[in-house]
Amino acid sequence: MLEIKSLKLTLNGKPVINDLSLEVKGGKIHGLLGVNGTGKTTLASLIMGISYPDEGNIIFEGHDITQCTISQRARMGITLAWQEPARFEGLSVGEYLKVSRNLSSSEIESYLWMVGLPPKEYLNRAVDVSLSGGERKRVELASVLAMKPKVAILDEPDSGIDVVSLPHIMNGIAQMSKQGSGVLLITHSEEAVGVANEVSIMCAGKIINSGQPQEMCQWFRDNCQTCVHIGEPDYKGV
């Protein structure tokens, strides 16, 4: 469904995305695991069209969308949930969920329930600073669910989330794949990638290993947790 082919991006003379290739399939969750500063959020920006690569291609359903704008990509069915979602003064949760398409009240309510937010309490709340970080992230996930995207890029939906909110976030992600969306789940948490069908490990702008979640988590523990690697990946056996 979504293919990233040999993507490269250099910023200030430093390779940030370094010949990266990846595939996200419909209805599947692809976990992208990596420590801070490995280029995960930059990759999300490139896929969404917030920035553009120096080289390589992004192919979606057979079409090269590398030069498409954010809006064009979104209308094709790609969306992004930010690590720190924007706040909107004067926009209610209900209105925010309806931004991408017309929804009935019951549909809006069902999406809020999917992320564990009681509609009565949240429907008319503003998507502004009055929401906690966890609430805002859950609203963001509900809004992605409401869009029914073909591919959702979720940038660290679990970071800064308390133990009460986390199961709701994970449920929202599972719902996305159930409704047929391909999910690129970006995280540095081993627990979060437990819901993934496949996991890739990213380091210094490159995919350095891919495989089953359990196997990759073990590999991540063995190779990455003490690593402060910046520059070209040089792992043994990679």
Binding site: M48, I50, T69, I70, S71, R73, A74, R75, T79, L80, W82, P85, A86, V99, S100, R101, S143, M147
Partner: peptide, 8 residues
Amino acid sequence: QTLMARGL
């Protein structure tokens, strides 16, 4: 960008 990523 957030709203454009929802198709606006």
